[in-house]
Nucleic acid binder design. Sequence first.
DNA 1: GTGAAAGCGCTAACAC
DNA 2: GTGTTAGCGCTTTCAC
Lengths: 356, 356
Amino acid sequence: MNPDPGATADPLAESPHPARRARRGSGAVTLHAIAKLAGVAPITASRALNTPDQVSAKVLQKVTEAVASTGYVRNHIAGGLASTRSRLVAAVVPTVAGPVFLQTVQALTAALAEHGYQLMLGQSGYVDSREDALLDAIIGRRPDGIVLTGILHSPEGRKRLLASGIPVVETWDFTPTPLDMLVGFSHEDVGCAVANYLIAKGHRRLALVAGDDERSTRRLHAFQAAAHAAHAPPVQVVRVPAPTTLKSGRSALVALLAAAPDAPPGAVFCSSDLLALGVMTEAQARGLSIPTQLAVVGFGDIEFAADLHPALTTVRIDGNAIGRQAAQFIVDRAEGRGVALRAVDVGFSIVERDSA
Amino acid sequence: MNPDPGATADPLAESPHPARRARRGSGAVTLHAIAKLAGVAPITASRALNTPDQVSAKVLQKVTEAVASTGYVRNHIAGGLASTRSRLVAAVVPTVAGPVFLQTVQALTAALAEHGYQLMLGQSGYVDSREDALLDAIIGRRPDGIVLTGILHSPEGRKRLLASGIPVVETWDFTPTPLDMLVGFSHEDVGCAVANYLIAKGHRRLALVAGDDERSTRRLHAFQAAAHAAHAPPVQVVRVPAPTTLKSGRSALVALLAAAPDAPPGAVFCSSDLLALGVMTEAQARGLSIPTQLAVVGFGDIEFAADLHPALTTVRIDGNAIGRQAAQFIVDRAEGRGVALRAVDVGFSIVERDSA
DNA sequence: GTGAAAGCGCTAACAC
DNA sequence: GTGTTAGCGCTTTCAC
């Protein structure tokens, strides 16, 4: 495999021990070999790679050459053990398949990579049982930080996380009692803002289609409260199982129409853009005109929301900003920088397009 | 932080060295502490955790109790260094934001977790420059395997991967010259099959909207060849930049219609479902009826393809199977099991719905 | 600016 | 079935 022998093999041959045990090792080039090639101590080679300005130019050059000639790639596993800094960060999502957290994961991965950190991905699923095993698997890798997106169900799990001493960033929410650090926004404010937006547009008969997860529920309650405060009639509600799909959006509109044939809603707020697309699809299939007969507002500002027909009015969350800020929090903490700020509210905005 | 002192602190106090250096360690409970608590040697505690049937029931119980009482979580970093098996697997995708590889990543993550492996995620982006740095970051973590989805641009990178000796699985393709292991399907066969399908449906004027990536190009060529073989008129082609979007699908249909106002295509094959949704959206906006005036075929069978209106006819790839098989390959290799098979063709199927 | 020694926490190899 | 020993490959501490 290695077309360049000689250079890498010899330095190890003159080991002082007269062959006691045969321990295999990985066979890869080690920092020791680099040091020998460069004629310096291992620690000096280490410094040349990690903190180049702590060594002389001559040493730096020799080490660099040795690295280039051998194709050495440093072993972060060993480094992590010695320094108790793995430069690994874990992200936990319910599932990667959903479109919601993708942008966050993408931004997180990219931002971490810039600082030399690597992302580990864990899926908590929608079942509690897996969560504990996942947490053990993660903590066992001693990441320098854990980013939580979506909820962590078990209180047991929260305890374990806390006990591990690993920095934690919770995202996509803005709870009053964070585990550690927090990057998110208020779901209550979203529900309230959308209700007021629709009411300001002249709508009275409001409806809401929402997943049965906790965050959607919070938006729902705030939405209802705002409608009530504006003296609008009671909000017509349909809950669908999470994760939300286009299909459940279609069914939800059917249910909505069937429930009140005489007084159909004039506007509906969906707890995801996919749900909204489902509502729009069903409306179109039934010849219901949007936004004239039914106004639709989504949530998430999915990539293609602007290009739908009609273009979807929705709530935009800056998933990118969340990912970047989460990365920043963890890197700062790992680097030992004292962070004054522990919670960031990235807010949201209602993107007004054609569907409402 | 830890509300349960006493149990964990004492065993370490009687260290034989009269305090020479102060090395801090992580402060977490170690296997040594567990062993002391259970009254056995560290290696025995290790065996109790890793290979429980190699120890007596009594020892197993004592160790289990010690683990429970201290909340011990084993350090995989240290274990990985000692055993040269990190139980980490890297997956490289162009970007997590695209819907294409999500199912694969999800299945991969889940399947690996079942075997005690954890996924590291790397984004190669659409720029070559990042690739080398990413590869170094990955190899430096000494994963037990690397799963490649989407193309690896640089031949330099391929060389590095090979030299690292890490098992590699390439996915979503079936090339004749794999780096190592392979799970995918033939893009040529897809292009050919779709062309024949449309022709069998009586279509003659075929069009194709495709991303400018390599795989789409291969489908494109096969599609053209099959159309030509069936004596159909030349295929009308529009290329769009990768990653494909709903928006570019809309523009593509505009371009298609503008290019041949007198002889519009009767059927169009899109290189992604998102593109197909864009074409359908634009068609609907223009009052063009699908499938009567224009038949549309997508690629990928995105989650909501069946629920669109009209339901989208598309090419289904079993991303789940790809992810699971890739995990199997890597676990088998890591476990030292000789694998006879090194390449699996998962095939594809045309899912006939209403749009074509 | 450079180095020697020790050891991070675990497991492979060899005993018994 | 269990223990002893050495050491994975790196970085920390302390010393020059």
